[in-house]
Design a protein around this nucleic acid. Structure first.
Length: 433
RNA sequence: GUGCCCAUAGCUUAGUGGUAAAGCUUCCCGCUGUGGCCGGGAUGACGAGGGUUCAAUUCCCUCUGGGCACCCCA
């Protein structure tokens, strides 16, 4: 028998208040990373003239079912779907591109200057088992280019934006994995060819691959199983089976990437799990890091698929948590811009009360103040000032309050002087220099 | 969804079938209105539920959460 303590109910309460699985608080100590990354994305976007767009976190379920493909893992088992009070089936968005396409159609964005360059950043949700670099709520920043034409230079520009954004965070040794998966004209033929190749060798395949053979044969190229890898060597590759248009498109993309001198790796086995991709697909990796920091590709059919007029598009998304993981693992430090704050110390009730208006006065003079008005002990306040590494402390007591003066103490040298309140701001500014 | 590992204070870790120790952190004190160093003290934990047992933080099961892998993806 176990005795029940009233501690138990407290515990249960605390348990109920945990974050849901795979979802995390971003604590003050980590904000420096987030701020830096968001700033970086914004800078790159603005330099290359991508316009900011924000779409709702909730979308109708049909949007993703139609965009990503009904049989993709994301749609089949990774979406947070629920019924709203009406009859709508809503989803916590699992990715950003479909929403962009939706917004493009909904607001007639095809009528503003093309190509339309958009960027976004925000939380995405996928119901899956958390793992290294994988969470149920995670953040992506993405760049998209939508246009009436499918100029391969757009592919290169999107890849460039993703690359520069990551590179600007001091992450070293990046590589772009790039491939083409053809278009609706040449891919089905290639797919058939690949299927035929493996069909005759089916008994050498691993269990998973046998299943994939019908569901997603392109995926076979990605298998880690040794026997499958051996078979892969002689398997037909997309590159040899492209139609003329896809071939010249891809060639041009590679030429642009080379012109930019970006490190890339032609990866014949790179395929992506979302149905809307065609032609160029890419992922960006940092050396020694297991999963892609960014990924994307071309999606020329998506907008039409969603009911819009035919528009070509290409986009890429960066995984922000993965970025932070690399940054932390590489011991990259982002220096915090530490403002020199001045610590205000009060002694006695009168001074405490007057401190409130004193702070307002200092604010008007653009002097940053730190205080701990809740502490009345002088020692405690000085300790705080020290902890926050303030260069100066202002000591304001009963005597000073009457005399309309204040003590300005240099915490580094331990020297101090009493100055009239009228001159306070000037003296502080001088000393801070 | 499947498999393996894990769960002691805010953090990092000890330890035990008879309810737990330390370092760091936080807070207070070290005589009148002066900080850092130092010294003293305080707060604070066995994830939850059930089972076995005289007795469970310890053994068993379930759940929850974490880690890793598969699948897939950022």
């Amino acid at each position: 028998m176990r005795k029940k303590t009233n501690k138990t109910s407290k515990k249960n309460k605390a348990l109920a208040l945990q974050t849901p699985k795979g979802m995390h608080d971003i604590l003050p100590q980590d904000q420096v990373f987030w701020n830096r990354i968001k700033r970086q994305v914004k800078e790159i976007a603005e330099y290359y003239s991508f316009l900011r767009i924000d779409t709702p976190i909730l979308e109708r379920a049909e949007l993703f079912e139609r965009s990503l493909g009904e049989t993709t893992d994301v749609v089949e088992k990774q979406m947070f779907v629920f019924k709203s009070k009406g009859k709508d089936r809503l989803v916590l968005r699992p990715e950003g591109t479909a929403s962009i396409a939706r917004a493009y159609i909904q607001h007639g964005l095809s009528h503003i200057a093309q190509p339309l360059k958009l960027y976004y950043e925000g939380p995405m949700f996928r119901y899956e088992q958390p793992q290294a670099g994988r969470f149920r709520q995670f953040h992506q920043a993405g760049f998209e280019m939508i246009s009436h034409d499918d100029d391969p230079i757009y592919d290169a520009q999107v890849i460039l934006a993703c690359y520069r954004a990551i590179e600007g965070l001091k992450i070293k040794k990046l590589t772009i994995q790039i491939n083409t998966i053809g278009c609706k004209n040449c891919r089905p033929a290639y797919r058939q060819k690949l299927q035929n190749y493996y069909k005759s060798r089916e008994r050498h395949l691993c269990r998973d691959c046998r299943r994939r053979l019908t569901t997603n044969p392109l995926r076979l190229l990605d298998c880690q199983n040794k026997d499958c890898q051996d078979l892969k060597k002689d398997a037909p590759i997309m590159l040899d089976n492209l139609c003329g248009f896809c071939n010249s498109h891809f060639k041009a993309v590679l030429e642009y990437i080379e012109e930019l001198k970006l490190p890339y790796n032609l990866n014949n086995h790179l395929v992506r799990g979302l149905d809307y991709y065609n032609r160029t697909v890419f992922e960006i990796f940092a050396e020694g890091f297991y999963s892609a920091l960014a990924g994307g590709g071309r999606y020329d059919y998506l907008i039409e698929l969603l009911g819009g007029r035919h528009s070509s598009a290409v986009g890429g998304a960066i995984g922000l948590e993965r970025l932070i993981e690399v940054i932390k693992a590489s011991n990259i430090i982002f220096p915090m811009k530490t403002k020199n704050k001045v610590f205000l110390i009060h002694i006695g009730n009168l001074a405490k009360k007057k401190s409130l208006t004193l702070i307002e006065e200092l604010r008007n003079n653009n002097i940053d103040i730190l205080e701990s008005l809740g502490k009345d002990s002088l020692k405690a306040q000085l300790r705080s000032a020290d902890k926050f590494k303030c260069p100066l402390a202002l000591i304001f007591g009963q005597k000073e309050a009457f005399e309309e003066s204040i003590i300005i103490r240099d915490l580094h040298y331990g020297t101090q002087e009493t100055v009239p309140l009228k001159k306070m701001a000037d003296v502080i500014k001088r000393k801070l220099k």
